[in-house]
């Protein structure tokens, strides 16, 4: 029972974890792409990794923190322009193919020895190079703080300050996206999502709107990468991989594409359930006879498999997710 409570607490802790916030932001960006515009960006992890590199490298080289954020965003913008310009006039799956490839390329360059002195190669950039300037922003006093069962230090990697910053950023991005998607601009995007020829026939430059959406969502994805990297480290294999992108997709489709709160709710539910499942199975594997059949490493694999199956089932049986409106379903790309 005590064990169960521990698992439960640990899972509930994921609701406010910085990683959850990072995925929420990444999914908000992807929501602009897919939910509102119908663009199939299969490389959100590439945007995140680039953003994190931009942030981390700037600080490592001694740049000020505001510049680090700017460079992170700029990295996302440039990447989106590079990918979007050749592909956005073609059928939707070309963008998907190019983005998934480009994200892999970013990862390969990141782990390559080529720019190792900046990126740290395959082992990545350690957090200590860039964490200090971030922690210096903290307005919290020294020490620890406990809220119910959740106790963290005030300032540090896995801290209250990181949480406040991450969720503050979620709120900001959410408000911004809410404002722009309920505007006439957002209406054009929804029109494009459904039938871009119809929108073109009304005199709107579809290409330009798609590029704007791709750039904006990509910049948000780059910010998400920064939030993800702040409490951890910038490691190309764990951040830039395809798994990361697909987790973001699962988060978005779980919460509901083309909804305002879908990405946030999706991220919270996803990570709570994911943590519960993995810690639960690991506890079973370690403490009971189940361990003879399933090792703790295999628990991770089974966890990943279940994510894949969840994604398939979501798309097949409830494509509108938890919050979505079936009538305004996002799946209409050709």
């Amino acid at each position: 029972m005590e064990e169960f409570l521990r698992i439960l607490t640990q899972s509930a802790g994921e609701i406010l974890a910085p990683t959850t916030a990072a995925f929420a932001i990444a999914a908000i960006g992807l929501n602009l792409h897919f939910g509102y515009t119908g663009l199939l960006n299969m490389g959100q992890a590439g945007f995140m990794l680039l953003g994190a590199y931009g942030f981390g490298i700037t600080l490592t080289l001694g740049g000020p923190i505001w510049l680090a954020f700017l460079i992170a965003i700029a990295a996302g913008v440039v990447f989106a322009l590079l990918l979007g310009m050749p592909t956005l006039q073609l059928r939707g799956d070309y963008l998907a193919i190019v983005t998934i490839s480009a994200a892999e390329i970013v990862r390969w360059f990141g782990r390559s020895t080529l720019w190792q002195e900046w990126t740290g190669g395959a082992s990545g950039l350690q957090g200590r190079y860039y964490k200090d300037p971030f922690h210096a922003l903290s307005f919290l006093p020294e020490g620890r703080f406990a809220l119910g069962p959740f106790e963290y230090i005030n300032t540090g990697s896995d801290s209250w300050f990181t949480r406040i910053f991450a969720w503050g950023l979620v709120a900001l991005v959410l408000i911004f996206v809410w404002l722009i998607t309920r505007s006439p601009w957002g209406r054009v995007l929804k029109g494009i999502r459904e039938d871009e020829d119809a929108v073109r026939a009304l005199g709107k430059s579809v290409y330009s709107y798609k590029l704007q959406a791709l750039v904006l969502g990509g910049a948000i994805g780059a910010l998400a990468g920064v939030v993800y990297a702040i409490p951890l480290a910038i490691s190309p294999d764990s951040m830039g991989g395809r798994t990361m992108t697909f987790f973001v997709w699962t988060v978005l489709l779980l919460g509901g594409a083309a909804t305002v709160f879908g990405p946030v709710l999706g991220s919270m539910i996803f990570f709570t359930a994911y943590m519960f499942m993995r810690t639960g199975m690991r506890a079973l594997s370690e403490d009971t006879a189940v361990g003879n059949v399933i090792s703790t490493t295999q628990v991770e694999y089974i966890g990943g498999m279940l994510v894949g199956i969840t994604l398939m089932c979501l798309v097949i049986f409830r494509p509108q997710g938890i919050l979505g409106n079936k009538k305004e379903l996002a799946f209409n790309v050709r």
Binding site: L40, M42, G92, D93, A96, T243, F246, W249, L253, Q298, Y301, I302, G303, G304, M305, V307, G308, I309, T310, L311, M312, C313, L314, V315, I316, P319, F331, N332, V333, R334
Partner: peptide, 24 residues
């Protein structure tokens, strides 16, 4: 008559699943 793009995302779910099956 599920749209092709929806099928594509199903295939992505399948690829995650298979990837972990291979790791198992």
């Amino acid at each position: 008559n599920v749209p092709v793009m929806q099928l594509m995302i199903v295939s992505i779910g399948l690829s995650i699943t298979l990837q972990y099956v291979i790791q198992l």
